[in-house]
Write a protein that binds this DNA or RNA. Structure first.
Lengths: 185, 185
DNA sequence: GTTATCCAGTAACATTGTTACGTGGCCGAG
DNA sequence: CTCGGCCACGTAACAATGTTACTGGATAAC
């Protein structure tokens, strides 16, 4: 391994293999081959396949939060919803690893789940900023609702189970409006 | 295999193994052992592991439709939403195979997807019954919206990614009300 | 110079989905 | 009754998977 950062090299190789060759090709051996190291490298740096997926999970949430930060500052509350879907489309590999169970037999570990809760809390804060009259509990419930809804939309689309794949964007925009209208009323 | 219906025996064995031992134990060998036949039996009757999952998928939609039939006749539109979640909780194994990608490396085949579309069409019809003023396209969009939303809620809960697992039912009921209010207004 | 620590690689392990091959039993034709 | 074909079954093998000893070598500390 010539790269100075072996973790980075293996992570990049894993994402490349997954997006290029599909989930069935996401094997320790092919990732190691792509990264230019031996299979044991994955175990040295990530403790195994599950640890590698956890790292992708956490990295995904970092990227996700960074993408959402400007949207949370926008005056249009629908902007954050749009950003959610846009990020998922642009980072399909990360998204499907995180929420679509793209890697067989690997569930998010505790660290990954905790990182997810952190991202969710940002959404709760955002709801409070949009609706200062809500208390923390009220904002939590609305954040949960909005999150579940956009999650359902995007997951349906990205896992190929949509009944109208070619109208995904239009339907999403409509759903966003219907979901947010009562919150903003 | 002493059972007169080998397909039924293998299907039951598969569901039992998955619910009892978890998805990592969902192997052709252990299913065959549970069913009391050899591994090749699964290939004789289902063409392989993917065919077996497809059969579970289709059977799941049959059961799902049967559960929803009375709810579609109810005067309370929220009843169908409640039934969706109740069915998912009571048939967790079927649900996770169908939507939660419980079985690694197996996506629903064309027959399974077609069966899913059929179930979705029942929801569209139900929306039209509740709101006769909508045309087919308008009902489709609302059905898509309601389906994506409840799907997001239940999937979040059943895959263990909820930020408030102990309040799942309460939050679901609230989300149902918020989603259906604009439809019924 | 000696020693200890850490990382990489080879090779093996058990287990997976799948398939080639041989066997046996049932059922209809003669 | 006998024969023949067909269908399902099981054994055993195949390649590929995640994982783990074991070994070797480089590097830093003393």
């Amino acid at each position: 391994m010539s790269t100075p950062d072996p973790r980075r090299a293996i992570l990049d190789a894993a994402l490349l293999v997954l997006s290029r060759d599909g989930e069935s090709a996401f094997t320790v051996r092919s990732i190691a081959r792509e990264a230019g190291c031996s299979t044991t490298g994955v175990y040295t740096w990530f403790g195994g396949k599950a640890g590698l997926v956890d790292a992708i999970f956490i990295e995904g949430f970092e990227s996700f939060d960074a993408a959402l930060r400007p949207a949370y500052g926008s005056t249009d509350p629908a902007e954050s919803g749009r950003t959610y879907r846009r990020w998922a489309l642009e980072n399909r590999t990360h998204f499907l690893v995180m929420f679509g169970r793209a890697v067989p037999d690997v569930r998010p570990g505790d660290a990954a789940l905790a990182r997810g809760y952190e991202s969710f809390q940002r959404l709760v804060d955002h709801v409070r900023a949009v609706r200062p009259d809500l208390d923390e509990a009220g904002a939590f419930d609305w954040a949960y609702h909005v999150n579940a809804t956009v999650h359902g939309y995007v997951l349906t689309e990205l896992t190929g189970m949509s009944t109208a794949p070619d109208r995904a964007e239009e339907l999403y925009e409509l759903g966003l409006a219907r979901t947010l209208a009562p919150l903003l009323a």
